[in-house]
Design a protein around this nucleic acid. Sequence first.
DNA 1: GCGGATTGTTCGGTATAGTCGAACAGTGCT
DNA 2: AGCACTGTTCGACTATACCGAACAATCCGC
Lengths: 253, 253
Amino acid sequence: MLGTILKAGQVFALFNGERPEWGVSDIAHALGIAKSSAHDLVASMAQIGLLTQGEDGRYRLGWKLVELSEILLETTELRAVARPILERINDTYQETIRLAILDHGKVCYVDTLDGMQPIRVAASGLGSHLYPHCSGVGKVLLAHQPSTLVERTIAEQGLPRFTESTITTLEALRAELDATRQRGWGIDNGEIIADLRCIAAPIRNHSGRVVAAVSMSVPAFRFERSQDALRGAVMRAGDEISLHLGYRAKGVA
Amino acid sequence: MLGTILKAGQVFALFNGERPEWGVSDIAHALGIAKSSAHDLVASMAQIGLLTQGEDGRYRLGWKLVELSEILLETTELRAVARPILERINDTYQETIRLAILDHGKVCYVDTLDGMQPIRVAASGLGSHLYPHCSGVGKVLLAHQPSTLVERTIAEQGLPRFTESTITTLEALRAELDATRQRGWGIDNGEIIADLRCIAAPIRNHSGRVVAAVSMSVPAFRFERSQDALRGAVMRAGDEISLHLGYRAKGVA
DNA sequence: GCGGATTGTTCGGTATAGTCGAACAGTGCT
DNA sequence: AGCACTGTTCGACTATACCGAACAATCCGC
């Protein structure tokens, strides 16, 4: 693995919504390298458009990232196939719908549609990478992954607690994943935000592998009322998208 | 400049809407490096999420790009400030409105709102980098740049022709930029697509520097009718955004 | 307003780290 | 079955990214 590229990755990891602007000295300090080395790094990243230098000399993320992001979004078959189905279920139930994949051990949102009710779940941004152990989609995706990969993923990133209900032991997670796989759908019972419920269904490609998941996020009070109907709708959406991806159920799904 | 980072830039440059998936051998051939070197490069880029490896082994753009893109979009003050004004003008005239900056010598669209009429101008994607010599925003942005930078930019990327009206000589461009600066607005008279007209106004920041431009893109037949009204609206929008950025006109603007 | 402490940037020698080509392990197409 | 292709691993060579010191320019406080 090329150290220079990994350093670039560490630079990217510094930027977030709270701190979108970094100076060379800050970066050098944060990465533990010489200031001149940090300068060479960011100046090179700026030259290819991955970073931009403001008039004050400090660096921000570059617009090339937006361009590349758009190319990725526009050429992702899964998005194009799933869109109409996501829109329909969003239209019918007026709740927040999301499409997610597993990327580098994290749940990554590939498409999101906001709910349209006064009290709704605010969809977190496209592309955001979240822990998989505390969301419906995360459980669905992990449940259909080889167990060795699950072990390794959890070993790397742990099981941080967000609410009282968050699963924080590997044993409990394993049981939950087994249950998720058997019943065919995943649920988040307020494990990341207390008053939030989220149900998710798997999406399979032509070879039968689970490659993505759909989810509906609902405020807890509204979820209790119509749990079964919502779950059925999400599962139908998952099946329908799978069908469009070329999946043909063989025997017991 | 770090060669490894520049190589990464060359890799990114390969990916586009027509060819969103590349194999290691293809990349090695395209960059003129050894296959093993190309592998080290893309494997490293994949490790930090900038690339993803499909099940067939070939590489696609990685979802980290979407995450970083979202961070950039959400933390760009210009976008937040301009949004309501763009929405209002879009609402009033029902035409395609765009917000652009100059990035690495190219026009980069920072925000776009589609028109809402049956015959409308399809807004090209967010983040796309286009030639500045054939668009209204490009002329406005270049016109307020130091002339040495303009010379260098044109020397680097040339003046490719897209239609009969495209400006293709440095001399003609210089005259056009002078005119643009003097009259305070830029126009594209079908210089990129024949039946397309586009008018653009500058946006200044607190220090008076032109940092962006707003534009309205209109089908030619509709533009002829209400040219003056549209131009006035775009210029007012530019002034208003400038005001929100802290610009206070001093003497002759 | 002047000094001190920042900032980002340049330079050149040193040793690390990326490069290359051959051999490897799979896959898909005849 | 056999060939040609894929992405991947390994080890030796040498180019290359690293560092520290000196640079110019800016900002802050005395």
